[in-house]
């Protein structure tokens, strides 16, 4: 029988170790067995997602991107723009997670094609719900009540 909650690869672009750990823990607590690949810089993440020239081809496995807007090497908005401009990567759902509740940032993210915008710290219930809504959790899944 087919796994109703197949593990997929989630790419997390987050420079803060604590935030990365909290997000991962909450995904795990919600029952996700997904592979979570974290990048602390925008450049490394883009290398992985879009391919860094001939030497490193792009990875086709990523299914969801968690994006922080405040990164040391570039802004999350730039990364979002690059992803959405890419023919193959532009359909990947992107959840923006950031400390900023700036209206203009939020509008820009949605304009660029972000699926969800969440302000840190997110309510982890709605965070899990967002991940589910984005199609990673088929309807049959029963989220373990761990929180």
């Amino acid at each position: 029988m087919r796994d109703p909650n197949p593990p997929v690869m989630i790419v997390m672009i987050e420079d803060d170790d604590g935030h990365a750990r909290l997000i991962e823990k909450n995904i795990r607590r919600a029952g996700g067995r997904h592979e979570i690949l974290r990048f602390a810089t925008g450049a490394a993440a883009l290398d992985f997602l879009l391919g860094g020239g001939a030497t490193r081809p792009r990875s086709p496995r990523a299914r969801l991107i968690l994006l922080d807007l405040n990164l040391p090497d570039m802004t999350g908005l730039d990364i979002l723009a690059r992803l959405k401009a890419d023919e193959r990567a532009r359909r990947l759902p992107v959840i923006v997670l950031t400390t900023s509740n700036d209206k203009r940032d939020i509008e820009k993210c949605y304009d660029l094609g972000a699926s969800v915008y969440m302000i840190k710290p997110p309510n982890y219930d709605s965070f899990a719900n967002a991940i589910q809504q984005l199609g990673l959790y088929p309807a049959a899944i029963q989220a373990p009540e761990t929180i």
């Binding site: 803060d16 604590g18 935030h19 909290l22 823990k25 405040n70 400390t99 900023s100 840190k120």
Partner: peptide, 17 residues
């Protein structure tokens, strides 16, 4: 204030943990 929020998010999050 933006940068102050980043550690604060950790304190809030890990306090919950």
């Amino acid at each position: 204030s933006h940068d102050l929020r980043a550690p604060l998010v950790n304190i809030i999050g890990f306090a919950k943990e």
